[in-house]
């Protein structure tokens, strides 16, 4: 298994190189960093000096190499917009997005999985049909609309929950968390529901479909024929067999959550990386954009790795001895 994980990591390297190349290309060729940094009135001499200082006069591959080396050291240069190190900006925004995405993912799993199991076990019950009908709403409602509706109802009309920001956060050296204060937790509720609802309904519908499928299988019939009780059959035998596809989809969906978090963070003015990205795009802040791209690629590689590890844990057939 260790060998397979190592080979997985090796496979990730070309992916990262390609993404690195893309963000390098954006970094170097979109816009003109020299004129952005010096303004329009610079003299040609100043421009040449700046080009040299930025290493833009070096051969293409050398520039790419330097870019990647700096990326590995988490150095993406200065933000054009804020004139601060990009790495610092990202590190500041990382906790907000991480906490939002993780809360949404946990919420989606904690609600989606049991609902999927329930509706899979009783596909024709009244409750199941109601849940399934409701879930269509969750799948079809656009994230921003849901966020605005929630704000309208819970913030504007009822005044129960804040409509923007993270509330009070507690700072540690590299991390700021909203989990430890009441206002932080309250601030998390609407954004995480907004972000997680789609994934929750998706997980629920997937688990339901898989449960229906598995419950028809021979080994479930045989488990019933041995007189096993419903708990053993549904959870011990059936649910476990739905997990491989569920893990796959949840892994992909966490990626999706990061993507959708851009919308959610904008709606709720959530000070995370998504908001940073939107602001950077508006200001053509290329270094931040290329760093974001690299970071997302790394996150996807890590998610894939975790998904692979979970496969091994769940399915003994995949634990090939080599």
């Amino acid at each position: 298994m260790i060998a397979q994980l190592v080979s997985r990591l090796l496979q990730a390297i070309p992916v990262l190189l390609v993404v690195g190349f893309l963000s390098f290309a954006i970094f170097t060729y979109v816009g003109d960093p020299v004129s952005i940094m010096l303004g329009q009135n610079a003299t040609p001499a100043m421009r040449i000096a700046m080009r040299h200082a930025l290493g833009l006069d070096q051969p293409f591959l050398v520039q790419y190499w330097h870019f990647m080396v700096r990326a590995v050291h988490f150095n993406f240069g200065l933000s054009y917009r804020l004139a601060l190190p990009v790495s610092q900006l990202i590190l500041e925004r990382l906790p907000a997005t991480t906490e939002l995405v993780m809360t949404s993912a946990v919420l989606a799993l904690l609600v989606g999985l049991p609902l999927g199991v329930y509706t899979g076990i009783r596909p024709n019950g009244f409750v199941s049909r109601t849940i399934m009908a409701g879930s269509l709403l969750g799948v079809s409602l656009p994230t921003f609309l849901l966020g605005i509706l929630l704000i309208l109802f819970f913030s504007v009309l009822l005044g129960w929950l804040p409509s923007f920001g993270r509330g009070h956060v507690v700072n540690f050296t590299h991390w700021s968390t909203g989990f430890l204060t009441l206002s932080g937790l309250k601030s998390l509720i609407l954004p995480s529901i907004t972000l997680g609802l789609f994934q929750m309904t998706l997980i629920m519908r997937l688990v339901r479909t898989e449960m229906l499928e598995v419950l028809r299988s021979d080994y479930i019939k045989f488990a019933r024929a041995r007189g096993l009780g419903p708990r053993a059959i549904y959870f011990g035998h059936a649910l476990r067999n739905t997990l491989v596809p569920v893990i796959t989809i949840v892994g992909l969906q966490i990626g999706g959550l990061i993507g959708f978090s851009i919308v959610t963070e904008t709606v709720f003015q959530w000070p995370g990386m998504g908001l940073l990205l939107v602001q950077s795009i508006q200001n053509a802040d290329i270094p931040v954009m290329s760093a974001y791209l690299m970071l997302i690629a790394v996150v996807f590689v890590v998610i894939n790795l975790v998904v692979d590890i979970l496969y091994y844990v769940v399915d003994p057939r995949l634990r090939v001895k080599r």
């Binding site: 021979d218 080994y219 024929a225 007189g227 476990r240 003994p316």
Partner: peptide, 22 residues
């Protein structure tokens, strides 16, 4: 359920699919 398995057992056709693979 107290009859199935305890008083009447069952053997099915295809052993490749009747055992839970996990």
């Amino acid at each position: 359920r107290k009859v199935r398995g305890k008083r009447i057992g069952a053997i099915f056709q295809d052993p490749l699919t009747t055992l839970n693979p996990l």
